[in-house]
Amino acid sequence: MMATINWNGVFPAVTTKFTANDRIDFYAFKKNLNAQLSAGVDGIILGGTLGESSVLTNREKAELVRFTVEKVAGKVPVILNIAEGATSEAILQAKNAEELGASGLMLLPPMRYKSDHRETVEYFKAVANSTRLPIMIYNNPVDYKIEVTLDMFAELVECENIQAVKESTRDVSNVTRMINRFGDRFKILCGVDTLAMEELLMGAHGWVAGLVCAFPEETVAIFRLIKAGQIDEALEIYRWFLPLLELDIHPKLVQYIKLAEVATGIGTEYVRAPRLMLEGEERERILGIINQGLATRPVLPEYMSL
């Protein structure tokens, strides 16, 4: 029987916390995880861009999935990102995720090789057909150079477990194109923090968020207020949030968002090489943005019951 996920809501792409000696910091990770759950998020995504997937070993990914599944204890789905160069390795990662108790997968096109239309579709189908887990396609041509086009999605309709898309094309009108062509067949989750309110208003079902790692309550509040039709209240928070959300669309988003997590008391600054921690003018500039946000942080309306 095909599994399913409720793809509506806020899905943090959580960072992977490290210690000073470059081990996974499960204590700090658990603290952040608890903050996400307390704020009312609707799922947890592991091993994405923010999770520093490219520098994690398969063993570390397995440890993260196992730990998160245990701590979340069924409250929300746990989703593992798959970003591999070989189809066979992607299939293996899907199999491992299923065995470890993950609820679903987020799936990028092939890494490193720029596959064409036919190759991209076959890659997605091969992984989808190898697992019963629900899948969200990650469509990010800006960073990963392959666009998953509407014609590709038309061929992926036959895979029942391909249920959603992380929409990161940075073209807001793509939400409407998807809905016009496919109706409700694919759930659409905004994957770019700076476009979240716009895409949610255009009918996106969810938000794969980045700054939620440091500001979980504000992120969930915006989502729930929008869906409850309280647009003015959501807009006030969103306008305050935008300078912080812009940290999500820089190549150093990992370092920037981890610095924000430290500022809000739910993270560590350590990153894994080749990334390096921020220093000098750059660090001061990003801290200035974060501290300005903290100094003007809004009082949130009651949103948990919306």
Rank of each mutant, 00 (worst) to 15 (best):
K166T: 08
E167A: 06
E167Y: 00
T169Y: 03
T169W: 00
T169D: 07
T169G: 15
R170G: 04
R170Q: 14
D171Y: 11
V172I: 14
V172F: 03
S173N: 14
N174D: 15
V175Y: 00
M178T: 09
I179H: 02
I179Q: 02
N180P: 00
N180V: 05
R181M: 11
F182S: 08
F182I: 09
D184K: 14
D184I: 10
R185I: 07
F186P: 01
F186K: 13
I188E: 03
L189H: 01
G191V: 07
D193Y: 01
T194D: 10
T194Y: 04
T194Q: 14
L195A: 14
A196N: 06
E199W: 00
L200M: 07
L201A: 13
A204F: 02
A204C: 08
G206D: 00
W207F: 13
L211T: 15
C213H: 05
C213F: 02
P216G: 06
P216Q: 08
E217M: 05
T219S: 13
V220K: 06
V220D: 04
A221C: 15
I222K: 03
F223R: 08
F223D: 07
R224C: 06
R224V: 07
A228Y: 01
A228M: 11
G229E: 03
I231Q: 05
D232V: 11
D232G: 05
E233Q: 13
E233I: 02
L235P: 00
E236I: 09
E236F: 05
I237N: 02
I237K: 04
I237Y: 00
W240D: 04
F241C: 14
L242V: 13
L242G: 07
P243R: 06
L247D: 01
D248R: 07
D248M: 11
D248Y: 03
D248W: 01
H250R: 15
H250Q: 15
L253E: 09
L253G: 07
Q255V: 12
Q255A: 12
Q255I: 09
Y256G: 12
Y256A: 14
I257R: 05
L259M: 13
A260Q: 01
A260Y: 00
E261Y: 00
T264V: 10
G265E: 06
V271T: 11
P274Q: 09
L276H: 12
M277S: 10
E279P: 02
E279K: 14
E282W: 04
E282M: 13
R283D: 08
R285T: 07
R285V: 08
L287A: 11
G288T: 10
N291G: 05
L294A: 05
L294R: 08
A295W: 02
T296D: 09
T296C: 12
P298A: 11
V299M: 12
L300K: 12
